[in-house]
Design a protein around this nucleic acid. Structure first.
Lengths: 190, 190
DNA sequence: CCGTCGTGTGAACGCTCGCTAACGTCTCGT
DNA sequence: ACGAGACGTTAGCGAGCGTTCACACGACGG
């Protein structure tokens, strides 16, 4: 019935992309399998040829995001020993991600609780490692602060940079990017 | 069966409080009417003695938040003509709200899309007016910026202050409050 | 040329959920 | 004292959803 022209894992990726968009818009529980299928050009249960379950789909999405971010942070660590340059690189990395994939930002902090226990633990561990990279560099560049204050500052910095899902619809990445980078740099230095 | 001792609208308020907690934790679609009832000490359909529907409950919650914030902002405007003092008051107001009612922060920007059309329009109008107050004062205190930049800065400031749902579980309001206030002030001035 | 595999389909099952219905009870004004 | 109304209960309906099943079909290696 379907022509099935060419590409190998195209469908799978398309399903992930469309699912991210729908999860960001309606939430995990507000999105139906049939809806994801329709958005991806297939109908309903075809999803189960590529993913074991709706939760499994979400798990792959969130684990993928967390691994991408942590890998990026680790690459920056080895590439930039100097705290100042390291912070700059981390900011550019996170702002770039937040500007270009706002749906993933939304899904990551909205639907983490919808993951099954083991995947959620995995994602949380990856996120914790990523946050620790930031806490480490924030503790080095700013004024002396307690660990609690540093942790709060790190989460605040993420909140600032991850505001893109609310503002990116009004503004282009070219103008929003420098604004966010400047603001977060001033915020962590304060 | 129930003793029904004393208080008049106690149940109603308790339902709203518990619903906010559950919506924040599991999302609107991930929370059941029976679950809300159980958390409030009643069972299931008793909710409909106080609210017309599940969506109506959410609507009252979100409209209440938006009105509270806008009313507070307007009071600050009339009380503080000076831009610098006005910004300080707005920051204290928003940070205080974010620190003491983090669940409402979460629900407001997560479940807005689950509202029926008319309530959603109403909440959006209130939010827009609140954001405009912030844009106005940010445009006055910071360096010269385009309207797009100011809008981005305003959303970034909210993102920073509203990071409390992710950090408040680790840290007390007494330590987080000053950190957030200092950071957002530096961020908007940058 | 044919069996297997990958990928799609529509139908159906079972469960959950929002909401209504029918009914009981406590409080309170007249 | 008693009818009304506020507030609670349990039972059940109807719809939607995640998932499974039985089946179809093109691609491809032997």
């Amino acid at each position: 019935m379907e022509l099935m022209a060419g590409a190998p894992t195209r469908r799978r990726d398309q399903i992930l992309v469309e699912a991210a968009r729908l999860f960001a818009r309606h939430g995990f529980h507000g999105t139906s399998i049939d809806g994801i299928g329709a958005a991806a050009g297939v109908s309903g249960p075809a999803i189960y040829r590529h993913f074991p379950s709706k939760e499994g789909l979400l798990a792959e999405m969130l684990v993928g995001i967390s691994e991408y971010l942590l890998d990026g942070a680790r690459a920056i660590i080895t590439a930039h020993p100097d705290p100042g340059e390291r912070l700059t690189a981390l900011i550019d990395f996170q702002v770039d991600f937040a500007l270009h994939r706002p749906e993933l930002i939304t899904v990551q902090d909205r639907d983490l609780a919808s993951l099954p226990d083991d995947s959620r633990r995995r994602v949380r561990a990856l996120q914790r490692a990523y946050v620790e990279v930031w806490e480490d560099v924030i503790a080095r560049v700013g004024p002396p602060r307690s660990t609690d204050e540093v942790r709060t500052a790190a989460h605040a910095a993420f909140g600032l940079m991850n505001s893109t899902p609310r503002s990116a619809s009004h503004t282009s990445p070219q103008v929003a990017g420098p604004v966010l980078a400047t603001m977060v740099r001033a915020a962590v230095a304060a």
